[in-house]
Amino acid sequence: MPLDTSTYSLALLRLDGRRWNELRRIHAQISTQAAADGSSYLEMGNTKVICTVTGPAEGRRTAQGAGQECRVEVEISVAGFSGVERKRRGRADKRTQEMQHTLTTAFSSILFTHLYPHSTIILTLHVLSQDGSLLAACLNAATLALIDAGIPMSDYLCACTAGSTANEDTDEPLLDLNGLEEQELPFLTAGVLGDSDKVAVLMLETRVRVERVEGMLAVAVDGCKRVRGILDAVVRAHGRRMVEEGV
């Protein structure tokens, strides 16, 4: 879908009226499902994801598991109505499988898996609406749900995307792309551990000059820290409410 982003250089305002370093509205809730051990609902702009955590519980295949550490299993289902056109994405879809693998390996190294030998943590994510930054939204929602489930982890894993404007002479990085911008511009998704500069997840899928990567990564890491602030506020507000209501 061709899209005219040439107006950006004039007003320095993006299609949805943001400046280059502005995040979209992030709205998050935790403990949304009573039945799950931990659950969360996250909106990053128009991307909406719901996540539930089951476990740590005895896994389906404990006999074969590594034993000393718990397994992390991730299932992502993308609703048919989530995109612009109705399209059914099956379980065998490679993009979904890749995202599942990313979440599994990312959280396996961040959660204290050695505390739960012979067990499994199952993360189930449902994508209700897609408008860019899907992987970032899934990572953020999973972090919140795992915190809600009370599973010890070293720090928040917060993610966001960063892109680079298309014109050749000036390469200005952009933070948190929406769906239209993602189709048009080169972008990367970074997942950063807490307040550090340590990158746990990095996915770049579009061809881009090597010089631009540095700017994009710097903006993405900075954005992740701001996402962490927002998620932390959500968790603390929820904690306060729990104390007040005595749940």
Partner: peptide, 28 residues
């Protein structure tokens, strides 16, 4: 990458968190 210095794809699926600067060095 290709030999003209364009990054086509970078994939780090989780694992140990790595410093951002060290990652940039990878491309060089």
């Amino acid at each position: 990458m290709n030999r003209h210095g364009e990054v086509c794809q970078v994939a780090k699926y989780g694992g140990l968190p790595i410093d951002a600067l060290a990652l940039l060095n990878c491309t060089n």
